[in-house]
Design a protein around this nucleic acid. Structure first.
Lengths: 257, 257
DNA sequence: CCGCAGCACTTGTCATGAGAAGTTCAATCG
DNA sequence: CGATTGAACTTCTCATGACAAGTGCTGCGG
C-alpha cells in the first residue's frame, strides 16, 4: 500500500475517532514525516487528499487544522442503497414489486439511448431501513445488463454489488435531484398520503467508456432519508464538495458544525 | 501565478473549448513539461487537480484522457444564487418580502447556536430567473453579520457577494436536501398550488473558524431549478463528486453523457 | 504597558533523480 | 496466422534539496 495512502488513512482515522477534535491543529509536515518515516512528498500528498475531502484546512505558514468529520465512508455509499444503509449501522431491506423485460416508455428509452422497439429490464423495489419503508426504486437496465438480474434473487440484497461482482462496469453516475408528489403506487408502498412531497433522485449510470447502462428513479420519504452536501471555499486548491445520503435520525450526529 | 495553476488553467481551457475532445488523449507528462518549461512536479499537480474535478482520467502506464466538460464554473456558483444564474447566462432577480431583527424560533436558534433570547436578522426573498419566480429564500443571520444587511439594498443583487466584499468570512457550507409541501406563503410567492412538492435546500454557512453565521431554507420550484451530482468510482485517486444547480431548460445541454 | 521589529517555524512551490509497475506495440516463435 | 516475448514508453511513488512567502511569538524599545 502506497505510503501516502497509509498516512492519509491514519490521519482520517484519528479524525473519525475524535482523537483529533474539530478545530484542533494537526502535527506539522515535518513531524508527520518523522512519525511515518516518509519524506515530505507523500505527506503533502496525503494532506492534499484530506483537504480535498473537506476534512482539514491548510494555508501557508499555518499548521493544518481539522475542519470536520468524514461525511460518507466511501464512494460506493452513494451508488448502493445497501452499502449506504449498512455504513450507517442500520439494516437495509428490499421487497421486489415487479421484475420484467419489456419496451420502456419513450422518455426512458431516450435516456437509455435505445431504439423505440428495444426492450429493457425494469425492476421496482421498495427499500427499507430497519424495516421501515424509506424509498421506492424504479430501475431500468439495458438488456445486456438487465438479464443478469434473473440470475439471482433481488430480494437478497444489493443489486449494485451483485452486478459489480459479475463484472458489469458500473462506473460513473449523474444524479438529478428534485421533488415530486407521491403517485398512487408511491403512496401505497411508502405508506404516505397520495400527493405527499417526495425527494426524487434520478440516476443515470454509465460505464467507464461512457455507455448508459441504467436509468433509475428513486423516491425517498424525506422523514427517513435526506441528502447532504458539504463544501468549502477557503481551501487554497479548489476543493470539491462532499456528498452523502443521510438517514433522518442521524442528522444531528452526522453533521458536525 | 503558480506554474501548476497556469498548466491546469491552460488544459482546462483546451477542454472547455473542445480543442481536447471528450475521450481524447492528453499529451504525456514529459511533453507537458517541455511545453510549459516546468518539471514533472507542477505538471503532475495540475493533472491531479483536473482529475479531481472529474475532467480527466489517469491510470498507471496510460496517457491521461478527457472524461467530460466542466459542470460548475466555480464553487461560488453553489453558494450564491446570483452567481449561479449569471454563470448560466440568465438574469437573476430578487424581491425582498421581509427584513427584520427579532428572536428566531427555537429550531432556528438552535442551528445558529444562539441563546433563547438572542435576536437574529431574518430576510425573506423571492428569487427569479429571467423574471420567473424560481425560489423562495428564508435566511437567518447572526446579528453581527445580519446588521450589515441594512447597509445596502437587498433587492440590488447578491447578498452573498455583498457580505464577502464587506469582509464577512462566509466560508464553508453544509447543505441538507429534502422535499416539502408548499405552505401558503410559498404557494403565493412562487405561483404554485398550496401543497405542491418543492425542493428544499437547508444551508448552514460557517466561517473558516467553524462559527455558524447563517441558516437558510431555500425552496425551489422543481420545474425551474434542480440539483445535479456527477461522480465516478474509477478515477484512481478517490475522486470527489461534482455538484451543481441546474436551471430546467439547460438540463439536456448541461449534462453530457 | 503597548507597539514594532526580527527570528524561528510553518506551508507553498519547484527542480532533479531514481526505481516500481502498468500499457502498448512490434518483432519473434510456434 | 495466432500467441508470446520483450523493449520502449507511460504513469505512480518516493527521496532530497532549495527558495519563497506567510504566521506567530519573543524581546526590544518607546
Amino acid at each position: 500500500m502506497p505510503l501516502h495512502v497509509v498516512v492519509a488513512d491514519a490521519i482520517r482515522e484519528r479524525i473519525r475517532s475524535g482523537d483529533l477534535a474539530v478545530g484542533a491543529p494537526l502535527p506539522s509536515e515535518s513531524e508527520l514525516s518523522a512519525q511515518f518515516g516518509a519524506s515530505r512528498g507523500p505527506v503533502r500528498q496525503a494532506l492534499a487528499q484530506l483537504r480535498n475531502e473537506g476534512l482539514i484546512e491548510t494555508s501557508q505558514g499555518r499548521v493544518p487544522t481539522v475542519l470536520g468529520r468524514p461525511l460518507a465512508h466511501s464512494i460506493d455509499d452513494f451508488f448502493s442503497f445497501s452499502a449506504w444503509v449498512q455504513a450507517t449501522g442500520r439494516t437495509p431491506g428490499q421487497h421486489t414489486i415487479e421484475l420484467a423485460w419489456r419496451v420502456p416508455p419513450a422518455e426512458v428509452a431516450g435516456k437509455l439511448q435505445l431504439a423505440a422497439s428495444d426492450r429493457a429490464v425494469v425492476i421496482v423495489r421498495r427499500r427499507s431501513i430497519d424495516g421501515l419503508p424509506a424509498m421506492l426504486e424504479r430501475s431500468w437496465y439495458i438488456s445486456e445488463v438487465g438479464r443478469r438480474l434473473f440470475d439471482f434473487d433481488p430480494d437478497d440484497g444489493s443489486i449494485f454489488g451483485a452486478l459489480i461482482e459479475r463484472g458489469v462496469p458500473l462506473d460513473s453516475g449523474t444524479h438529478t435531484i428534485d421533488a415530486v408528489a407521491a403517485d398512487p403506487l408511491d403512496a401505497e408502498q411508502l405508506g404516505v398520503p397520495p400527493g405527499s412531497p417526495l425527494l426524487r433522485v434520478e440516476r443515470l449510470t454509465t460505464s467507464s467508456a461512457g455507455h448508459v447502462l441504467e436509468y433509475a428513479d428513486d423516491r425517498y420519504r424525506t422523514d427517513r432519508a435526506k441528502l447532504a452536501i458539504r463544501n468549502s471555499r477557503s481551501t487554497s486548491a479548489v476543493s470539491r464538495p462532499s456528498v452523502a445520503r443521510l438517514a433522518a435520525p442521524v442528522l444531528q450526529e452526522g453533521l458536525p458544525a
